[in-house]
């Protein structure tokens, strides 16, 4: 595909870097791991009638792991919902884009960052859509670290019991949480087996392979009526910038002028695709 297609992952990461540098903020690694997932969802799956982020009847993208919100801002920029000024003034006094997902921003559906909240809200939206007989789809992106939260498993029990097949939980399985590897902090074991045992139709996918993500999402929706869906996406925290990849310091590290320049260089974008 040409570099100038919408939601080009390199360009999305470039936006994330611009925001992170402008705001001198953290959570770059958390945003980078979900870039391809978001790119595929926005480009090929989410329906926003009239390109309106508040349109009634829209599909819902719930970013339960609010720490990845800069990647979503990058997509919202491509949608035309936020502008250049908002990117460059990120974190300036009096601006409205925050460091974590905030539902008052059109395009963001939940206030997350305290983990384990968004998924349940998504379950409620899915139940509401089902009761109203709409064909809306609800995607909820959770982090693997976020799966430490008990409320996620409460919501999974409910979704399976009530056969919410309009709901898809997408796990950003990047293998890290704030203080270390998920395997070292609170081992999650075999996620696919866990989701399946909870009654979710489940697929695993390389979370940076856009074609594979797209195909997995389509196949999940197309099969197993009556079952909620789970997509376990194996990702790399910090993906796209080699010195950030799998280095959990980029959960909390801020960019300097030098690392900003190096990271932009590593993305290797041609001028036309920025």
């Amino acid at each position: 595909m040409p570099d100038d297609r919408r939601f080009h992952p390199g360009r999305l990461r470039h936006t994330v870097l611009e925001m992170a540098y402008a705001g001198s903020t953290v959570h770059i690694g958390c945003a980078f791991s979900i870039v391809e997932l978001l790119a595929v969802l926005y480009r090929d799956h989410l329906r926003y009638p009239g390109n309106d982020p508040k349109a009634e009847g829209r599909d819902y993208l719930v970013l339960s792991k609010g720490h990845g919100v800069m990647a979503q801002y990058a997509c919202m920029r491509e949608m035309g919902w936020i502008g250049e000024t908002e990117i460059q003034s990120y974190f300036s006094d009096g601006t409205h884009l925050k460091g974590l997902s905030d539902s008052r921003i059109p395009g963001l559906e939940v206030t997350s960052g305290s983990l384990g909240h968004g998924f349940s809200v998504g379950v409620g939206i899915a139940l509401g859509a089902r009761k109203q007989g709409t064909d809306q789809k609800i995607f909820a992106i959770v982090g693997d670290g976020e799966l430490n939260e008990g409320s996620i498993w409460e919501g999974m029990l409910f979704a399976a019991h009530h056969r919410l097949d309009n709901l898809m939980i997408i796990v950003d399985e990047n293998g890290f949480q704030a203080m270390g590897a998920t395997e070292d902090v609170l081992s999650l074991g075999n996620l696919r087996a866990k989701f399946e045992s909870f009654g979710f139709k489940t697929q695993e996918v390389d979370g940076h392979d856009e074609a594979a993500i797209d195909s997995a999402i389509r196949s999940l929706w197309a099969t197993a009526p009556g079952q909620p869906k789970a997509l376990v996406a194996r990702t790399v925290k910090g993906k796209g910038v080699p010195f950030m990849e799998d280095d959990n310091r980029w959960h909390y590290t801020r960019l300097t002028a030098q690392t900003f320049a190096e990271a932009k260089g590593a993305l290797g974008l041609s001028e036309g695709s920025k």
């Binding site: 559906e109 909240h117 968004g118 998924f119 349940s120 809200v121 998504g122 379950v123 409620g124 939206i125 899915a126 139940l127 509401g128 859509a129 009761k131 109203q132 409320s151 919501g155 409910f158």
Partner: peptide
Amino acid sequence: GMAAGLARAGF
């Protein structure tokens, strides 16, 4: 959390 989602969906 679900109640919030249901309210968002118009309930």
